[in-house]
């Protein structure tokens, strides 16, 4: 398995990153270098092994905690928007969204 410049372009677009040709080439080489060490995973027999999503599940059962349905957050719009790039009348502004 080896990633092509086309793959890099597709992934970058999915990730909303803009890479120059030269950046894409370096990215391709570095990722392919990484996936060489990933190859060894193939040899591991994982049939019937349950994926470990939450590490402490090894120690005890993990289950989602549920909180009471209480609306206790006050309106903190001003503080929450303090670091926003563009705000008008309390709305975040972005380039026109075309549906």
């Amino acid at each position: 398995m080896s990633l092509t410049l086309q793959d890099i372009g597709r992934i970058a677009n999915l990730a909303r990153l803009e890479l120059s040709t030269e950046q894409s080439e370096r990215m391709r080489d570095q990722l392919n270098g990484f996936f060489d060490i990933v190859e060894q995973m193939k040899a591991v027999d994982t049939t019937g092994v349950e994926p470990l999503a939450h590490p402490t599940a090894v120690m005890e059962d993990v289950a989602l905690r549920l909180r009471p349905d209480v609306a206790s957050e006050p309106d903190r719009r001003e503080a929450n928007q303090r670091s926003a790039p563009a705000v008008e009348r309390g709305l975040f502004l972005v380039p026109k969204v075309i549906e």
Binding site: R67, D69, V70, A71, S72, E73, D75, R76, R77, N80, Q81, R89, G90, L91, F92
Partner: peptide
Amino acid sequence: ATQSKIFSRAPTAFGAEPNTQACAVDLAL
């Protein structure tokens, strides 16, 4: 028909001023 959001404690009432019912969690701060 809950009082608060599914993953935050902000209210769910309809028709409030823009972003006054979006807390830090809802804004993904």
